[in-house]
């Protein structure tokens, strides 16, 4: 839908082996945590291990296992969430290729194959801030 806006330009940060980037919803309406079904964070072709990924929204941080039950915590279309994972990014002066993959369930579209899900991704190049 608006996948080109998933990654917020210039928001890549890395500290002590964990790397994070701000992400926007590629959809027109709010979705709850239970519909944020998965993500991947890849920098310069190296993906953060899936079990290390964390999702922060509304100033609360969740693992993806924890998001499954969160029908009460919503990602509003104007808000940036933060996707982070264990990933070392060296050389902060260099440009890094950041890729984010998102899998979202669309809870009001029920198909013959179950609840519709969409898979969107975005790639942007930016420097990493080290904090």
């Amino acid at each position: 839908m608006i996948a080109d806006r998933i990654i917020e330009q210039g928001t890549l940060t890395t500290v002590d082996g964990r790397t994070a980037v701000e992400v926007r919803i590629p959809w027109y309406r709010a979705l709850p945590g239970s519909c944020i079904a998965g993500a991947a964070l890849t920098v310069d072709g190296v993906a953060a291990p899936a079990e290390s990924l964390r999702w922060t929204m509304n100033e609360r941080t969740f693992s993806f296992d924890e998001l499954v039950d969160r029908t009460d915590e919503w990602w509003f279309p104007l808000d940036s969430a933060v996707l982070s994972g264990e990933l070392a990014v060296d050389d902060p002066q260099a440009e890094h290729e950041v890729r984010v993959d998102l899998k979202l369930y669309i809870p009001y579209i029920i198909t013959d194959h179950g609840v519709l899900h969409i898979e969107e991704h975005d790639t942007k190049t930016m420097k990493a801030a080290q904090r």
């Binding site: 499954v68 039950d69 369930y105 809870p107 009001y108 029920i110 609840v115 519709l116």
Partner: peptide
């Protein structure tokens, strides 16, 4: 308003 029948992951 939205009819989010599929809000939960385990069932409708």
């Amino acid at each position: 308003v939205n009819v989010d029948t599929g809000l939960r992951r385990d069932r409708l």
